[in-house]
Design a protein around this nucleic acid. Sequence first.
DNA 1: CAAACTGTACCGTCTGGACGGTATAGTTAA
DNA 2: TTAACTATACCGTCCAGACGGTACAGTTTG
Lengths: 181, 181
Amino acid sequence: MDGMPRKPVAREAVLDAFATLLIEVGERAATLDAVARKAGVSKGGLLYHFPNKEALIQALLDQLDTLAGEDADAMAAAPEGAAAYFIRSSVWGDTPLDRAIVAATRLAEVAHEETRRRFAAIQRQWLDEIAADVGPALAKAVLYMGDGLYFNAMLSVGPVPEGGAAADVDELLAALERLRR
Amino acid sequence: MDGMPRKPVAREAVLDAFATLLIEVGERAATLDAVARKAGVSKGGLLYHFPNKEALIQALLDQLDTLAGEDADAMAAAPEGAAAYFIRSSVWGDTPLDRAIVAATRLAEVAHEETRRRFAAIQRQWLDEIAADVGPALAKAVLYMGDGLYFNAMLSVGPVPEGGAAADVDELLAALERLRR
DNA sequence: CAAACTGTACCGTCTGGACGGTATAGTTAA
DNA sequence: TTAACTATACCGTCCAGACGGTACAGTTTG
């Protein structure tokens, strides 16, 4: 057996701090120094795990893909239907996936091309699942409702967290029921 | 009386260049140097009109408020109804208002608090108009659909402009009709 | 068994460049 | 004449990234 090298605790802390800063203060302020400080790690330590900022971004996007994949499965299997599951999950919930999505959104906003590509792929996944549930004619309407929720999460999530959007979900689900008939 | 000094042509050019850069390359890359270059103006000339970057942002937000106000009036007066007008106008159209919205979105993303406040106010305006049209129960559903369109404009507008979203509007309008019954 | 060695996981400092902003002297057009 | 510029030089700050170290767990060798 090989002597296990000690666990890289810093790596996860850094990635989490990076996401948190992206969400709370935007890409501009998510500097390497700020990330390191938030993670309780030295800058040198950060760069040991992620040789440059792009590597940090890539790790975040990989995590996003993983989580989005899992979510797509859960969506397909949801008893309430994919559409309702989607709307319900589109409201800001501080789940790992929501965090990854909003964090990645900050990068897409700064014109990071690969992030945009990945987002497009995830949205296609969502659209497929929703279309399988409510039919292709209504799928876009549902998708855009969810996107609207994310849009608002993006604009409001920050130093002042708010629970306002949660109340809207019932309204949206009611509208969904109405569309379904 | 003074013989009118010549018109500040640069001012408008700078503001437009600022918006364009925000839309196409994000806040990060919309530096003062880049804006001046794009506007075909010297950096000194830019700073003559806008003493600092914050002044540039304020001018953009003022423009946004003006355009949004005009649009709210048009929305209220639209023969097809406020909701349909809203959805139709939410798709990316390269209109002055759309440009101002997406440009401002880039600032909100970077956690610019006042931009976020102004956005919230505009959305409240929209919601009121839509509620007056389709009733309060469905207003949020319509609003979020429109927001979803903006969300997608934000993610895709850039070096690669696309006309894909326009096709979705009919689908959304059909869903709206269905909700209305 | 222990000294010598190896690789991993960090820390702290430094540098080169970009960016926001200032300053200032000169130029053009109404 | 004066507002509306151009052109350029410069400053302080901040940031990404490079670099040289340190601490320590496990591994090998005498």
